[in-house]
Write a protein that binds this DNA or RNA. Structure first.
Length: 680
DNA sequence: ATGGCTGGCGTTTTT
DNA sequence: CGCCAGCCAT
């Protein structure tokens, strides 16, 4: 092997890229270049080992990560070389699998992928029409059933193992939910992984076909896999174990939603010839940051010890700023950012404020606005929650799958077709009895016996219209959708709904924006040689959701406001961690719990986002649900050696509104008061 | 059908 | 304390 091919990689990274003798687990510390290892390995497999790109599968958890990885390989490979290369999320792989194998799963072409909202609506409707109305909370049911699905437990098994009435009710609800999905020719997100696993397990021909296809599999953020995802990985790689899994148990922060970090250890049991490589050199942070992180995480006994180090420099001690109240904390963060921005010509995009819960963002937002500091806030997928976008998506989904009840209900009276609640209620009852979709019920002969003649007539008109549209399925997807909006005169509908024409215009613009976005999706995938038909477009749309918005945010030069969870995978020059208090971090519900370690890892993730500087803030008293309570500094601060922390607080005067000049002046006074931060 | 009021509740979030 | 959802009243 030519060593020069790996210039720029350290020995461990190079070994991870080169190792092909069996399954490989790369324990990659924060900032140790794990994405780099995966992309280099893909390039290596294609260029040096002659494995065709279409035999290589790389899996991530988020669209963003998949996009990032794809763009990094694009830089290194010719279009010819990377043709057919599958870099995607677990869910997209599952979708592609099901698109090929749907018949064996009892689905019809054009099946719908329900998003979390649609699935919740389905639960609500099932619960409301069941005997356990008022006993079962829809959200809780959705969560529990999702857990079951992710643990590969069938409704039947749930029922047999149920300990009490509530569990029996949930198990029965699970069963009804799955039946209803089948009736609607629909799947939820969990099914995108679960159904392929089920088929691969029971059908050896399918399994062998897929195992032959998957020449090499790479998995990112392996510690975040749940039972189903791990099973999918295992089934796809077979006994050969042509697998590289990259993960970091220190960054396991999603156990609360079903991730099984123990899958890292399970790998060694399932593949006795597993090779392990640790990456401990960090390419992101100064050593004071890494020391804080190392000491903090040393208290987590459930994870494997890794000592991060870098040759980036010593760094400064981290400040711990104690504020009287949360308002003061927010103001303090804002003025600190302003000062540093002007003092060191630091771009706003180099700052991040991290916090445990979204509600903490509000005050910080206000404080930043007061000082005219631009900021970006993640967590809002508001664009896709807008009514006009949901309407538009429902029309598209319904064109593809008339049995999609969620879309059917959304659209049937939008715009008004005088099909009211009474008709829909009767139709729904009829459909439930026959375990069919609403559309199928509307189309059945017997429906006339239940409905008023006038209602039947309106319903038929709507269904005929839908059928007519579906006839045109060969027309370009975007064209059909435009025709639909034309036919229902959606802009006029919006004008009726909105008080001002301006507001209606704005909403129509959103629809236009959505159409542009759809165009982009269908173009992007035709790059891969696959023509995107209407069903594929509708299905993929549900999975891609928020990508666009995230991209837009990236362009702006603004301070990032993020939850600690959302910050994973990102890095910033200067990081503020707000609310370093007991009952916030660690969260109050996790304090006396085995979940405490996950809180510590969350803190670890926050710390390791920082390249150069780290500032912790906390308050002395905080208002919780209207009541003032004294607070205690987070135990995690105690886990960081005292010489790495400089506590500040009492007697430091807060600046009022700050102009640029006043900012410099004030900063000088604060620095005079505090003295220079001492180097470590 | 729509809006206003009240009561209950209040982690983290992707697909 | 604030927000949302759901309910009730118009």
């Amino acid at each position: 092997m030519n060593e020069a091919a790996f210039s720029g990689l350290n020995p461990q990274q190079a070994a991870a890229v080169r190792y092909l003798e069996g399954p490989l687990l790369v324990l990659a510390g924060a900032g140790s270049g794990k994405t780099r290892v995966i992309t280099e390995k893909i390039v290596y497999l294609i260029e040096k080992k002659g494995i065709p790109a279409r035999g290589i599968f790389a899996l991530t958890f988020t669209n963003k990560a998949a996009k990032e990885m794809a763009s990094r390989t694009t830089e290194r490979l010719t279009p010819e070389q990377r043709r057919g290369l599958a870099i995607s999320t677990f869910h997209t792989l599952g979708l592609n699998f099901i698109r090929r194998e749907f018949a064996a799963l009892g689905l019809r072409a054009g099946f719908t992928v329900l998003d979390a909202d649609d699935s919740l609506s389905l639960f609500k409707s099932l619960i409301n029409h069941s005997e356990y109305k008022d006993i079962i909370e829809p959200k809780a049911a959705q969560w529990q059933i999702s857990q079951w699905k992710n643990d590969l437990i069938a409704p039947q098994t749930c029922y047999e193992q149920a300990q009490d009435d509530e569990q029996r009710a949930l198990a029965s609800l699970f069963d009804q939910y799955q039946r209803q999905l089948a009736a609607c020719n629909a799947l939820d997100f969990d099914d995108l992984i679960g159904r392929p696993v089920e088929l691969l397990q029971r059908d050896s021909a399918v399994r062998e076909r897929w195992q032959a296809r998957v020449r090499y599999l790479l998995v990112d953020e392996y510690q975040d896999t749940n039972t189903t995802q791990y099973e999918l990985v295992r089934l796809l790689v077979g006994k050969l174990g042509a697998l590289t899994a990259v993960g970091d148990d220190h960054q396991s922060i999603y156990a609360w939603r079903g991730a099984r970090p123990e899958n890292l250890n399970r790998l060694a049991l399932d593949f006795p010839n597993l090779q392990r490589i640790k990456l401990e050199q960090n390419y992101r942070s100064v050593n004071s940051v890494l020391q804080a992180a190392n000491h903090l995480i040393a208290h987590d006994t459930t994870t494997e010890s890794k000592q991060l180090w870098s040759d980036i420099g010593a760094g400064e001690a981290h400040r711990v700023i104690v504020c009287a109240t949360a308002e003061e904390e927010a103001e303090r963060i804002a003025t600190e950012i302003l000062h540093r921005h002007f003092r060191a010509q630091t771009e706003y995009r180099d700052f991040a404020v991290l916090y445990r819960g979204n509600h903490q963002a509000r005050l910080i937002e206000q404080a930043l606005r007061k000082l005219n500091i631009p900021y970006s806030l993640t967590g809002g997928q508001s664009f896709f929650e807008r009514a006009e976008i949901k309407d538009a998506m429902s029309y598209l989904k319904l064109l593809v799958n008339p049995d999609d009840d969620a879309a059917f209900l959304r659209v049937i009276n939008t715009p008004r077709r005088e099909i009211g609640p009474t008709t829909i209620e009767k139709l729904g009852g009829y459909a439930r009895e026959r375990r069919s979709s609403l559309y199928a019920a509307a189309r059945s002969m017997g429906i006339q016996t239940v409905l008023e003649p006038r209602a039947t007539e309106r319903l038929n008109r709507f269904c005929d219209w839908l059928d007519g549209l579906r006839e045109m399925r060969d027309t370009d997807a975007i064209d059909i959708i435009r025709q639909v909006f034309d036919a229902i005169d959606y802009p006029s509908y919006l004008r009726e709904q909105e008080a001002t024409p301006k507001a209606a215009d704005r909403r129509w613009q959103n629809v236009e924006e959505w159409l542009d976005w759809l165009n982009k999706i269908s173009d992007a995938s035709s790059d891969n040689g696959e023509i995107m038909d209407l069903p594929a477009l509708a299905q993929r749309m549900t999975l891609l959701g928020i990508l666009d918005q995230q991209t837009r945010e990236k362009d702006s030069n603004a301070v990032a406001l993020l939850t600690l969870h959302a910050a994973k995978g990102l890095e910033f020059g200067h990081v503020f961690m707000a609310g370093m208090e007991e009952e916030i971090l660690p969260h109050r519900d996790c304090i006396d719990d085995e979940r405490l370690d996950e809180e510590r890892r969350l803190c670890f993730v926050g710390i390791t986002r920082a390249r150069l500087s780290l500032t912790f803030t906390l308050t002395r008293r905080r208002r919780r649900y209207g009541e003032w309570k004294d607070t205690t500094p987070s135990r995690f601060l105690e886990d960081i050696p005292a010489n790495l922390l400089i506590w500040q607080g009492e007697g430091i005067e807060q600046p009022k509104a700050v102009t640029q000049a006043q900012g410099r002046e004030h900063l000088a006074s604060i620095r005079a008061m505090l003295g220079k931060p001492k180097a470590v």
